[in-house]
Write a protein that binds this DNA or RNA. Structure first.
Lengths: 216, 216
DNA sequence: TAACATACATACTGGTTGGTATGTTGGCAG
DNA sequence: CTGCCAACATACCAACCAGTATGTATGTTA
């Protein structure tokens, strides 16, 4: 029916322009949601930041809600995957991989003051909107599963204590990360986050088997 | 100068009426802020819930902001004091007192779904408004100091390990509580919070000195 | 009882919100 | 050259927002 590759150059150019507009909207929305929350993020402000008009927005998205969902799926989810899922699948020593991920948490003032995108949105919208909650829960689930998975792997390799439930420990790690993120955001102070990271790393080290404290 | 007790009955009645209106406004505002956040909480909705009119609101408070500050100081702060500061000063075994406080965290579906008032507001407003941040930071500070204080006391009594920094451990405890609260709120599932409480309690038990696992 | 203050109630305003209806442009197939 | 459609741009809208201006009932004071 459809001849593939028919006049592909021009069409490709047009499509790329359109998708760049969409991408700019996503980035601007992400930034504004990060700054003031989803409900308080104004569409007009998002449009001004993105440098596009309302017509373009409503051509690409059905509603503010749909724009928000797209931010979750196309900005936040890949970010978490890049920082917490893929790095843990790199075959390194599990505990070291986890320590690396924790130490990779950004601690610049701007990051600390703004908090965690995922947590921010979940805190605000999970009780209010099932669409957000479902999409955000998927991300949390993937995060937790990635941590639990690498801990299980470590248990079979002998570099992680066997007397611990990987799923429980993964939940605790995430709770610590988000909890310290909250404290640091409230204090508006990177030192709080840095101290938290040290505590989490200490805890991670305690997950090694007793006779195996120094494995690279 | 001022004759005290002059026609006290009538004046007292008037005053009590007025303060009851103020109290109803605070409670309604607290509830609406809890439901939708400070920025998205509508004054008209708060007034409808409180059953008072705009004139009464602006007689008692200068602005929405002032109303929010009053909620922090007169609703949230006493709540935290009642749950985390006073119970820890009761002279019980420190670790047991902390375990009691953690197990006292409400896990009814409505509480879990709504999250922690203090954390909710801090997450939303700390980066946006210094007035909120200052008032909320005072509460966090008192909470942390109460926990650290009881841990120090336990160290001198010998019921808490000496190789731990009370301030650090207090921060970690609060991070865990808030972190699990966030996870449970996002999952909208009391089971997550219950599992978190178990993990926190286990961690608290590990703070006893090695030969002192069962005291009281 | 007259003057006055407290504690509201009512009606309104200018600005902002998400959303829509309609107009315009540029490439491209026929 | 013509018609057509994707990809916007512009102008507008009702609803809602925090805040205000003004009216009023109920005591208290002199």
């Amino acid at each position: 029916m459809l001849a593939a590759g028919k006049s592909p150059k021009r069409r490709a150019t047009r499509l790329r322009d359109s998708e760049r507009t969409r991408e700019r909207l996503l980035q601007a929305a992400s930034r504004e949601i990060y700054r003031s929350g989803f409900q308080s993020a104004s569409l007009d402000t998002i449009l001004a930041v993105a440098g596009v008009t309302k017509g373009a927005l409503y051509y690409h998205f059905d509603s503010k809600e749909a724009l928000g969902y797209a931010v979750v799926e196309e900005v936040i989810a890949p970010d978490v995957r890049g920082k917490w899922v893929r790095p843990l699948q790199s075959g390194k020593d599990p505990i070291n991989a986890l320590i690396g991920a924790v130490q990779g948490i950004p601690v610049r003032p701007a990051d600390v003051r703004g908090g965690c995108q995922l947590n921010n949105l979940a805190q605000e919208m999970s009780p209010l909107d099932a669409g957000f909650r479902k999409r955000l829960a998927i991300i949390f689930q993937a995060w937790r599963e990635a941590v639990a998975s690498v801990l299980r792997e470590g248990q079979t390799l002998g570099s992680v204590r066997r007397d611990l439930q990987p799923a429980d420990a993964a939940g605790l790690l995430i709770a610590m990360v988000e909890g310290y993120g909250s404290l640091a955001k409230n204090a508006q102070d990177p030192k709080v986050m840095k101290a938290g990271i040290r505590n989490i790393v200490d805890w991670l080290r305690s997950l090694r088997p007793p006779g195996n404290r120094k494995r690279v």
